[in-house]
Design a protein around this nucleic acid. Structure first.
Length: 278
DNA sequence: ACCGGAGCCTGTTAGC
DNA sequence: TGCTAACAGGCTCCGG
């Protein structure tokens, strides 16, 4: 379940691994993975292109090519990118066998192979000239300087949906998913069931700070490793060790000892302390 | 404009 | 033990 810290960890890991390397050939095994253009066109357009720049917007990975186009990858829930080393001797590229969850393969000029795996097939890849056609509707980046409490207040004003659902809405704020939404609301001591528009400015200031602190701590720990997430280097994130409420339903609150509640909001499991969060 | 629910997928886990 | 059902969650689409 890669969210902003996991995707940021990915981008930081991929940059030194891919910079300057050229794609010799692409293979698409599950065509629906390629959102834009179609799978055939994708393989034609990336052939011969070199990785030139690396970035992130929300939960989207941006891989800029020397053609000026950008490969955009969204891992959704179970997607992963792995760089496989070349075959040790004579025969073709990428020694390790391709498993059934590998949907896109990029053969590189180093003999390595960049593979996109996704057990649940929700992940998507775009190849576009204009990144805004994919990420243009996203809300503010929570770790950029322009994101201030006032920004958050404006995006929550008048909203009747619960604050948990609004934090998951990528047009309100980019990059927050289920883990960091629950952890941020706990840190801000705000009940996830509250209507977004009911938060006063002091609460919004607390939430703004909590979001930034939790996301930075997530990046610091190289993300959270649950069932389906591991960075391309194979190293594991450690933020799950710091969870205060996420997946802790029925366990005691570290702050007050009350039993952590679990409910469903915005179609997502939601965890909170009924005593600490008001 | 906004909100909530279905659908996309498949491996894992809970329950009978 | 072996089966089925529920669950996991990011996002898009659709109806109200």
């Amino acid at each position: 379940m890669p969210e902003l810290p996991e995707v940021e960890t990915y981008v930081r890991a991929l940059e030194p691994l891919l910079t300057g390397k050229t794609i010799l050939a692409a293979e698409v095994r599950w065509p629906r993975t390629i959102a834009v253009p179609d799978a055939v066109r994708f393989t034609e357009l990336v052939r011969g292109r070199r990785f030139a720049s690396f970035g992130r917007r929300g939960k989207y990975i941006l891989l800029g090519l020397d053609s000026g186009e950008t490969v955009i990858v969204h891992l959704r829930m179970t997607g992963e990118l792995r760089l496989h080393p070349p075959a040790t001797s004579d025969s073709g590229p990428a020694a390790s066998p391709v498993d059934k969850h590998t949907h896109v393969l990029l053969e590189l000029d180093t003999g390595e192979e960049l593979r996109f795996r996704d057990m649940r097939k929700f992940g998507r890849i775009w190849l576009v000239e204009d990144t805004a056609s994919v990420v243009g509707k996203l809300g503010p980046e929570p770790l950029e300087e322009g994101f201030v409490p006032r920004t958050l207040a404006e995006n929550l004003a008048g909203r009747k949906a619960n604050i948990k659902a609004l934090l998951l809405n990528q047009t309100v704020l980019a990059g927050v998913g289920n883990i960091y939404a629950d952890e941020s609301l706990f840190r801000a001591r705000i009940d996830p069931r509250r209507a977004g528009g009911s938060l006063d400015f002091e609460e919004i200031e607390r939430l703004h700070l909590a979001l930034r602190e939790v996301l930075l701590a997530g990046i610091e720990a190289q993300g959270s490793s649950l069932q389906n997430y591991a960075p391309p280097t194979g190293a594991k994130g450690g933020f799950q060790e710091q969870f205060q409420v996420f997946r802790r339903g029925g366990e005691p609150c570290f702050c007050c000892g009350a039993s952590i509640s679990r409910t469903v909001l915005g179609q997502r499991s939601t965890h909170f302390c009924p005593d600490c969060q008001k």
